[in-house]
């Protein structure tokens, strides 16, 4: 089967087809690089400064600092009208007013960044003591936001997995194959394995690019911090580090990629036509999500079985089991398809 696998691999990726992968991954790398620009509606240096100060404080000291800073900013910003009228009525000297305006502008420039720090403080205060850690998380937060639906991965898997089962029919070689000793079940299983492995490898490549670009750009600072301390991840119940969470998320997505490849293989083995198979695969991918969008009362299993939901970003707990169950389901479906195609529906 190994040699057969080699030839199937060559059919799928041989010649200069691997160049397509390289080109798509380069485009993806550029896209990833641009998408990893930290983009927030407050001042990043001020946020970083606050977080840096807080990270050196004990928990109680940090809490006191945040509360007093919150009070200070609110009182400075809230006292503007009063100070202005005091200066107009001559109760305040020019020097005193100038001093206030300086403080006011400082508070105003810090307000939005402090607001983010304050929200983070509220988020952390819901966590256990060991997870209440202040560190600069905007880069990880951006990475998490970017790791949503990876259309590059889906596209790569589609263009390389669909032909695995449709190529023979489009080239009209299927009859030559089917009259060979190993041209039915063994060939089908080899193709299935190739499809699954291709899905995993292409998924792995796509997500590795994300990590590589992130690492090159920002390094992996604070990767050992608890994930709950990153903005937006406070509801996560896993006892895992930031890097651990993103790595596990990637593993889960890579498994979903394998599952996606198996789904494509099953559909292509049945439909045996490149274009019709692509349309059917796209429908099966997007249909459950559209149903969920249209009807909020849709059953939750629809979400669980949806490959697209697995490939989308998630700030919830790590879930490796669902893609594994889905993979198993698709393996069974594919074996049934094999039996159907080669026993009852030969022509």
């Amino acid at each position: 089967m190994t040699r057969l696998m080699y030839y199937e691999w060559y059919k799928a990726f041989g010649g200069f087809k691997w160049l397509i992968i390289v080109v798509i991954l380069i485009i993806k790398a550029v896209f990833t690089y641009q998408s990893l620009d930290v983009s927030v509606d407050f001042s990043i240096p001020i946020y970083r400064e606050y977080i840096s100060e807080l990270s050196e404080m004990s928990q109680s000291k940090a809490e006191k600092f945040i509360l007093s800073e919150n009070e200070r900013i609110n009182s400075v910003l809230g006292g503007y009208t009063e100070m202005e009228s005091a200066y107009s009525s001559g109760k305040l000297s020019l020097e005193e007013y100038k001093a206030y305006i300086k403080i006011y502008h400082d508070a105003k420039s810090k307000a939005s960044a402090f607001n983010a720090v304050y929200q983070k403080h509220e988020q952390l205060s819901m966590l256990s003591n060991e997870n209440r850690i202040y560190f600069y998380d905007l880069e990880w937060y951006t990475f998490g936001e970017y790791m949503g639906l990876d259309f590059f991965a889906i596209f790569l898997i589609m263009i390389f997995t669909v032909p695995i089962f449709c190529r023979e029919h489009s080239l009209n070689t299927h009859h030559l194959n089917m009259v060979c000793k190993n041209g039915r079940t063994k060939l089908h299983i080899t193709k299935l394995m190739l499809g699954f492995i291709s899905g995993l490898v292409l998924g792995l490549l796509a997500y590795s690019i994300d990590f590589a670009i992130f690492g090159l750009r920002y390094g992996f600072e604070y990767s050992d911090m608890p994930i709950q301390a990153v903005m937006g991840y406070s509801h996560n119940a896993d006892n895992v580090s930031v890097l651990g969470m993103f790595a596990a998320m990637s593993v889960s997505k890579v498994l979903w990629c394998g599952c996606l490849a198996l789904m494509i293989c099953g559909i292509c083995a049945l439909l045996r036509n490149n274009i019709i198979s692509v349309i059917m695969c796209a429908a099966l991918l997007f249909f459950p999500m559209q149903v969920l969008k249209l009807n909020e009362n849709s059953p939750s299993w629809l979400y669980s079985i949806s490959i697209l939901s697995g490939l989308s970003g998630s700030k919830e707990n790590i879930d490796i089991l669902t893609p594994l169950i889905n993979t198993a389901i698709w393996i069974v479906i594919n074996l049934l398809v094999t039996a159907t195609v080669y026993t009852k529906r030969r022509e």
Binding site: Y7, L171, N172, H175, C180, N182, L187
Partner: peptide, 26 residues
């Protein structure tokens, strides 16, 4: 069996084609 109409893998060399079918035929 040689069917009336059939295709072959265009990117394969003749020798690869025979090697591939040799594998398929076990």
């Amino acid at each position: 069996f040689m069917p009336q109409s059939y295709g072959l893998y265009p990117s394969f060399r003749a020798i690869d084609t025979l090697r591939y079918f040799a594998r398929l035929k076990g």
